[in-house]
């Protein structure tokens, strides 16, 4: 049992770091295309959103399959999501916008998709901070309440993805569908 848990955790770390290693490899071998800044920005964003959706899918999968050993994976997967989202935000503000505050503020205030994305990131900060055992103990019932913010943050992430697409909404719709299915499964269990 312990071995299995270790194996699963190892798998999460390997899969969690793979997108970063892949980007670094592409960067160092000049395989990021003609617009590397945009490419890295988009791939970090994709990875963050995928990791958030994976976080939300752990409980439904656990309930469907009865694999209770999946439960402890929520924290590392969630933290990877936060890591990539933070990288995405930093890449946007430091590299893409070269810390030009006037433009960043204008973006946040005037572009709903940027506001949605930034809000999602801000909402995840307290979740990342309180992800330790100590905080779980301290917050008791409120911990669960607080961590329901992940639903809001993920929904904002999907919206952010959807709003910045020009015409091809295929992948944003896939993300929306996954999110809706995961939420419906939860509601079904709550009522049952």
């Amino acid at each position: 049992m312990k071995r299995r848990r270790l194996l699963l955790k190892g798998l999460v770390w390997v899969l969690g770091l793979a997108p970063l290693v892949w980007l670094l490899w592409r960067g160092f071998t000049d395989r990021l295309g003609a617009n590397p800044i945009e490419e890295v920005l988009h791939r970090l964003g994709d990875t963050a959103l995928i990791a958030l959706l994976v976080t939300l899918s752990i409980t439904p999968i656990r309930r469907l399959t009865g694999w209770n050993s999946l439960a402890p994976l929520r924290r590392p997967v969630g933290l990877f999501a936060f890591f990539y989202l933070t990288m995405h935000f930093l890449w946007y503000s430091v590299v893409d916008q070269t810390l030009d505050l006037a433009f960043i503020i204008e973006d946040i205030v005037e572009r709903p998709y940027i506001l949605a994305g930034v809000t999602a990131w801000l909402l995840l900060i307290p979740l990342a901070v309180t992800s330790t055992k100590g905080w779980i103990r301290r917050l008791k019932k409120n911990w669960k309440r607080l961590h329901r913010l992940v639903y809001v943050a993920t929904s904002l992430g999907v919206l952010h993805f959807y709003w910045q697409v020009k015409a091809d909404t295929y992948w944003p719709l896939v993300a929306t569908t996954v999110l809706v299915v995961l939420m419906l499964l939860r509601f079904r269990w709550r009522r049952a």
Partner: peptide, 10 residues
């Protein structure tokens, strides 16, 4: 949905 004030020259 986005600013046209600046651009990234590839």
């Amino acid at each position: 949905r986005w600013s046209q004030a600046r651009e990234r020259r590839l």
